[in-house]
């Protein structure tokens, strides 16, 4: 770092700004200050997030901080120690970064993004939201009805447009899932709370277990 500053300190017009111990122009350091603040903003926010997590967990330990006979640390001793270690670790990381040791490995050259636009953002958000929607509706309409809808929607979101591919993949995934988990392993998946869906789910289960 000092070398870099030294090389950049070309002869300047008088009056010369004062120099630091390495002979760098103080002006250079002053000019770098805003970018330094920018540089440390991220680590400080990261540190605060870690402190918030550790502090929150520590705060919640008061609800089970009960004494245990013959074990002075009690039920909260171990989790509190971890919270403290977490705060210390986050502080260590911050100090390490503030000391200028935060040179992360250069990221590999990312492939050029060819698909851009607002609808792409919506597509990505939908990819993240779809599993949660699937989980939310599964107890209501039953897993056996929700699963094929999930498969079809995900494939459409992943830009599969061939009806044959969509039908084929859905059929194969659904058949394997029914065979393996419903027929052989008897996994009791949610079969729906809503009228109609409950009956449909049970009919599918009955079909999968036919002959047993």
């Amino acid at each position: 770092m000092s070398e870099r500053f030294a090389t950049s300190a070309e002869p300047a017009a008088p009056p010369f700004p004062p120099e630091d111990r390495q002979g760098n122009r103080m002006e250079t350091a002053t000019a770098a200050r805003p970018s330094q603040i920018e540089r440390f903003k991220g680590p400080i926010i990261e540190w605060l997030v870690w402190l918030a997590i550790a502090g929150f967990a520590y705060w919640q330990t008061i609800y089970f901080a009960k004494d245990i006979v013959g074990y002075p640390p009690g039920a909260a001793g171990w989790p509190r120690t971890i919270c403290i270690l977490m705060a210390l670790g986050a502080t260590g990381q911050l100090l390490y970064k503030l000391a200028g040791h935060d040179l992360a490995e250069p990221a590999p050259a990312a492939a050029k993004e060819t698909h851009t636009g607002a609808h792409r953002v919506v597509q990505r958000l939908a990819i993240f939201a779809l599993p949660f929607l699937f989980l939310y509706v599964s107890p209501w309409i039953g897993f056996y009805v929700a699963a094929p809808l999930f498969v079809i929607t995900l494939m459409l979101l992943l830009e599969v447009r061939s009806p044959l591919a969509i039908a084929g993949v859905t059929l194969i995934v659904y058949a394997l899932f029914l065979l393996l988990f419903t027929r052989f392993f008897f996994v009791a998946l949610p079969n729906g709370r809503l009228d109609g869906f409950y009956e449909v789910n049970n009919a599918i289960i009955g079909f999968a277990r036919m002959g047993l």
Partner: peptide, 14 residues
């Protein structure tokens, strides 16, 4: 991968 992804998620879910 577009064909495998739904199967992986269904298997992981179950």
């Amino acid at each position: 991968f577009r064909w495998l992804a739904p199967g992986i998620l269904i298997l992981a879910t179950v």
